[in-house]
Nucleic acid binder design. Structure first.
Length: 273
DNA sequence: CCGGATGTTCACCT
DNA sequence: GAGGTGAACATCCG
């Protein structure tokens, strides 16, 4: 699978990292002000953190949606009652009023199955918010503990990033993927960021110099901004080279492919040191 | 047919 | 405690 790397300002991917959840949250603003008329939480696997179906039904029925926020990859739906937390995993798609909240043009013909609707809210005013998730990798939680997430990667400042990373014996990639330390970066954003920063993913986080931490911060912010403008987490300069046997688009070296931080990793052994 | 895929949590090692 | 690995989830795609 390869994607065009420019020119669209709409998010096309439906496999969410920070940027995709941001777009989902933006689309979900359409239901702010509506009153919940029905809760469909029939898939109990999808309920996380001890949240029960009965709890969701009792507490959300009749609730008014007052806002939608995002921290990292967690989408938060504020109501005049509890807060509803939605996670999309790799395969969850947010549907608002019958259409895919992002990528509706690119994926209009993509297969859908009613059985994949894992959670839904209906409204007195009409319309519906639901999550379609073939693999059931996402989840729903009432009043999720927001304090368990690190600061959001899109707005973290340099000193905070440094203090959150410093001293860790784990690889820098593993630390960047750890949502408790920094929230929002997924596998693609991390590989793209480290590629741009010239830092090898397998470096011990505690071994990064002050200058490297500074560059890393700069590249996190830059990568998020650039890929947001292009249309999503899959629009990085490295994206189309995430295939075995590809060469680094910066210097032509053979890209390395391994597993770091438990995830498939592509990186350049020449300019990432 | 097989393996891997933008995620999270947990059990189980070292 | 920390860090690494693999399983589970269930579908698509090369």
């Amino acid at each position: 699978m390869s994607w065009p790397t420019c020119c669209s300002h709409s998010i096309r991917s439906d496999m969410p990292e920070l940027l995709e959840v941001e777009a989902y949250a933006g689309a979900a603003l359409a239901v702010v002000g509506r009153t919940v008329s029905a809760v469909d939480a029939g898939d109990t696997w999808y309920l996380k953190g001890g949240t029960t179906r009965a709890e969701l039904e009792v507490e959300l029925d009749g609730a008014v949606i007052t806002g939608v926020r995002r921290i990292g990859k967690l989408m938060l739906v504020d109501t005049d009652g509890p807060i509803l937390g939605l996670r999309f995993g790799m395969t969850g798609r947010l549907m608002i009023d019958g259409s895919v909240a992002i990528g509706r043009l690119e994926y209009s013909s993509r297969r859908r199955d009613p059985a994949w609707t894992r959670f839904a809210l209906d409204f007195d005013e009409g319309g519906r918010l639901s999550i379609d998730d073939p693999r059931r990798l996402g989840g729903v939680e009432l009043d999720p503990d927001e304090s368990r997430l690190g600061p959001d990667a899109a707005s973290i400042d340099r000193d905070e990033l440094a203090s959150r990373i410093s001293g860790r014996a784990a690889t820098v990639k593993a630390v960047l993927l750890d949502q408790h330390r920094i929230a929002g970066l997924g596998n693609l954003l991390v590989d793209e960021t480290l590629w741009r920063a010239g830092i090898a993913p397998g470096r011990r986080a505690r071994d990064l110099t002050r200058a490297e931490l500074s560059i890393l911060h700069e590249k996190i912010v830059e990568t998020i901004a650039v890929l947001r403008a292009r249309g999503g987490s899959h629009t990085g300069d490295l994206q189309e080279f995430r295939v075995v046997g590809a060469s680094c688009p910066r210097d032509g070296a053979d890209l390395s492919h391994d597993s770091t931080g438990g995830r498939s990793t592509y990186w350049c052994p020449v300019h990432q040191v």
